[in-house]
Amino acid sequence: MLIGSIIGWEVGQDDLFNPQSPRNRDDCLEPFRVLKAQALACGIELHTLDVIHSQGKEPDFNLYIESIPLITQGQGKNYLIRFETELTVQANADAVYLQQFDGIFTWDKNLLEANPQSLISLGLAKAKLHAMTIPNPLPAEFSPHQVVNLGFSARPQFCILIASNRHANRRDERELYSERVKAIRWFETNAPSDFVLYGHGWKVPQKRFGMLGKMRYRLAKVPPFLMGKAVFPSYGGPVNSKFTALSQARFSICFENARDIRGYLTEKIFDCLFAGCVPIYWGDPEVEKAIPKNCFIDFRQFQSYGALYSFLKDLSAEDYQAYQIAGQQFLASPQFQGFSSAAFAQKIIASIQHDFALT
């Protein structure tokens, strides 16, 4: 029996595999339960590192969830599951850090498709890189055979945005955290009755990067406090279920944390499609290669938020339902299966089996 550890989950104690974990919001931990089950079926035992050590064992390999300092040099093979971009997790662009791993699972097409010479300059071998998509658990309420709340009438909210108030961790023109705030402010000013903001951290001003950004953030907190006004008047609080919130809205502003990074396609657009909400998307420049263009509204096609709003208001009931039906058909198709928890687990297990000559 091969033994593997998971590193990077704060709680430990196999909490990553616990469906009752308080951190399992919207069943976001399902991919790791599937990974554990598929691993066991292939003769591989998976636990968080603390559980393995409590059993007096040492792992044959370690799976790091996102980039944290390596703590297992010389203790089995080390793999990195690289979920985020370097704008959010800066170590993801650190060649010295990446060189420490025996394998890297990533969605990053620029890295995966780089020519061997470019990889050599980074100190990486092509064989170390494994293509991966960010997994998307199916909500319990989702049905592949029926669109949730088909049409306008069952959706009382016109447009929403669900995100946390955060910032990029390096200066980069591709970041979209600040663009989300622009969208929020446009709707609050021009169409306040047609927009609701959800998520964590919006009782305070926009979070900003760097010393100057922190100073601007602190200064921006003062006027709303003195005047007793909400910083973001559209704020409706956090949501217990993204599916429930999205199923009540016609449209959702669906911007990734960063744009123009090939392969960076996260759960945001899938969350909308599951709930029958039409996403207004900006992020992966090649999104249409993964998701048919009739499933979403491409924000890049509009020169302003005013132009976008006019398009949304003029959309007929028939055209709106066409978006919803196209999204449902995509989710029921083999094309979506590459973004499932099962595909995520299969990719990781197959690579580990190959490295340990188990196949």
Rank of each mutant, 00 (worst) to 15 (best):
F105V: 09
N149P: 04
K242R: 13
V181F: 12
F251L: 01
Q99D: 00
A357R: 11
I68L: 12
G12C: 04
Q301I: 07
A140L: 13
T244D: 15
N78W: 06
H130L: 14
L2D: 01
F83L: 15
I348F: 12
I6E: 00
A322P: 02
L122K: 09
S310H: 07
V89R: 05
Q335N: 12
V222L: 15
F61P: 00
L197F: 07
T85N: 03
R174N: 08
Q20C: 15
Q328D: 01
L212V: 15
H47R: 10
V147W: 00
N78D: 07
E288V: 15
I120G: 09
A345L: 03
D60I: 15
L49H: 11
A343G: 06
K57G: 05
L35T: 02
N169M: 03
R171P: 01
K57H: 10
L124P: 06
P59L: 06
Q303D: 14
L138P: 00
W9H: 09
Q73Y: 10
E267Q: 14
D50V: 07
H47V: 06
F255N: 02
Q90L: 14
S234I: 14
S234V: 10
W9R: 03
H145G: 03
D94I: 07
K207Q: 15
F243P: 00
L111C: 01
T244V: 11
G263Q: 00
R185G: 06
L331H: 04
I297V: 13
V196H: 13
A230K: 10
A168C: 01
G151H: 01
F187E: 04
N24E: 07
K57Q: 14
A91D: 11
D319F: 14
L197I: 03
M215I: 13
K126W: 14
R300N: 13
Y97Q: 01
L129P: 07
W107A: 00
K182E: 12
W202T: 06
P292I: 15
E58L: 11
